[in-house]
């Protein structure tokens, strides 16, 4: 396979991968398999996610990418009849360690959902929600966390004068950025994003992608996306899944310019999926 085989290379602009300091196996997934009841959703997944990089999960619908993402903070625990084999470790510690509380895991692993889901509370209360449930009562800490998070989420200038207004009055793009601000307010180490832009217009999408670039200075980001362009634009590494299996995982540049698997090549070029 060569780069010339890419049918339409100009369509996808790949941002050159940047290597930064940090553990290469910050999140480590080993021989991971996962079942919903009788149905196997994931099979034999093994990949390492380096610290402070953006990793994109791509693949056709139903390939298991969202399932894997939702297992990183054990959101799938809400579903009845689930089962897994293998292990996922964060900084060497298994997330299934019985001594590790799910709540403390989720405090370290923030999540942004496909549909923006602000609480029917004020903007301020939405942002500081994670801190409140951690028991923070100090008003100055909450105020500071609110401003910092909203600034990081590039929303501060738009809402600073109406922090006490209902979050439900924001536009779709603002709501999604508010959800990002909420997810980073308690300074998690990892940020999971499940198709964060699929319900947004291109301008809002552009803002969120800019945001991801800035956030990766501090957070390790895993993003699930259906948009190849988005994966190419924002991620350092990309994993391609198909029917619950991990087909290929490499640097984004390699995946998009010179994939080693024919299936990856076919998917990226739009021939299936």
């Amino acid at each position: 396979m060569t780069a010339t085989m890419n049918p339409n290379p100009s369509r996808i602009q790949v941002r050159p991968a940047t290597e930064r300091d940090g553990r290469r196996d910050y999140i480590s997934i080993r021989d991971y398999g996962f079942w919903y009841g009788q149905k196997q959703a994931l099979e034999g997944i093994s990949l390492d996610i380096p610290e402070r990089q953006v990793v994109a999960f791509i693949g056709p619908s139903g390939c298991g990418k969202s399932t894997l993402l939702r297992n990183l903070n054990r959101m799938n625990d809400l579903v009845d009849g689930i089962r897994h084999v293998g292990d996922i470790t964060i900084k060497g510690r298994s997330i299934y360690d019985p001594g590790l509380e799910v709540i403390s895991l989720r405090r370290r692993v923030g999540m942004v959902f496909q549909k923006s889901n602000p609480f029917p509370k004020s903007i301020y209360e939405n942002v500081v929600f994670a801190l409140r449930v951690m028991g923070v009562r100090d008003r100055s800490i909450l105020d500071e966390a609110c401003e910092t998070s909203l600034r990081k989420a590039a929303l501060w200038d738009e809402v600073k004068d109406r922090l006490q207004d209902s979050a439900l009055g924001l536009s779709g793009g603002q709501m999604q950025r508010l959800c990002i601000a909420r997810a980073i307010a308690n300074r998690p180490e990892i940020l999971l994003m499940d198709e964060p832009c699929s319900a947004l217009d291109p301008i809002a999408t552009g803002k969120i992608e800019e945001l991801i670039h800035e956030l990766k200075e501090q957070f390790t980001i895993v993003i699930v996306t259906h948009s190849m362009q988005q994966a190419a634009r924002v991620s350092d590494r990309t994993a391609f899944f198909y029917l619950g299996k991990q087909i290929e995982y490499d640097t984004t540049e390699k995946i998009f310019m010179n994939p080693s698997q024919a299936q990856t090549e076919a998917y990226i070029s739009g021939r299936f999926g």
């Binding site: 403390s104 989720r106 959902f113 929600f129 994670a130 449930v133």
Partner: peptide, 27 residues
Amino acid sequence: VPRGMREASLAAGASKWQTIREILLPA
């Protein structure tokens, strides 16, 4: 109550009871 609200609360590190008290009951 929309599933999204429940998930958002749990993903933010709220316990089940906190989710019920802060999100589910008001909604």
